[in-house]
């Protein structure tokens, strides 16, 4: 593993070591303060090692990433693929939150009686400016 001992990596190892040991030392320091009667330091005493552990975790993950990259494996798990698009226009659409929906041209090849009826209703309303929606007589089909 020569890649993990390049100057940049040695600097990272040192940084991780200094940070982790530093956190432990700070935790020890808080312990001594707590033992001297500073009650609030008991909490800090537990927090510092957690931060130190986080440093180790990040360091370990970076090392693993570098190893995998060196071995030619994929380094990042891809985002889960989007759920398949609902088939056809009648399929139910469920949305978790408001989204921007692309406004596309309605495909003309598939007849949609519901849409035609609605358009007829809108056209009738536009043609009768004073009319209320309840005045709509219904679609005159030929």
């Amino acid at each position: 593993m020569k890649g993990l001992w390049s100057p940049a990596w040695v600097a990272r190892h040192l940084l991780a070591l200094v940070l982790a040991v530093g956190c432990l030392v700070l935790g020890w320091w808080q312990y001594s303060r707590a033992a001297d009667g500073n009650a609030i330091s008991w909490g800090y005493m537990f927090q510092w090692p957690v931060f130190g552990g986080f440093v180790v975790f990040i360091w370990w993950r970076e090392v693993q990433l570098a190893r995998r990259k060196a071995a030619g494996e994929p380094v990042t798990a891809p985002e889960p693929p989007a759920p398949p698009a609902p088939a056809g226009r009648g399929a139910p659409v469920t949305l978790g939150r408001p989204v921007r929906v692309a406004v596309g041209q309605a495909t003309g090849d598939a007849p949609d009686p519901e849409l035609d009826a609605y358009n007829d209703y809108l056209a009738w309303l536009a043609a009768h400016p004073g009319a209320r929606p309840s005045d709509y007589p219904g679609r005159i089909t030929t």
């Binding site: 609030i40 909490g43 800090y44 927090q47 957690v50 931060f51 990042t76």
Partner: peptide, 27 residues
């Protein structure tokens, strides 16, 4: 300081975790 100090320490842990999570998702 006595009130907020401990709280901030724990919340900062969550901040680190959330930042880490976001950073590996973007990445």
């Amino acid at each position: 300081v006595e009130t907020v100090g401990q709280l901030h320490g724990f919340l900062y842990m969550f901040y680190l975790a959330a930042t880490f999570d976001l950073s590996r998702r973007v990445p």
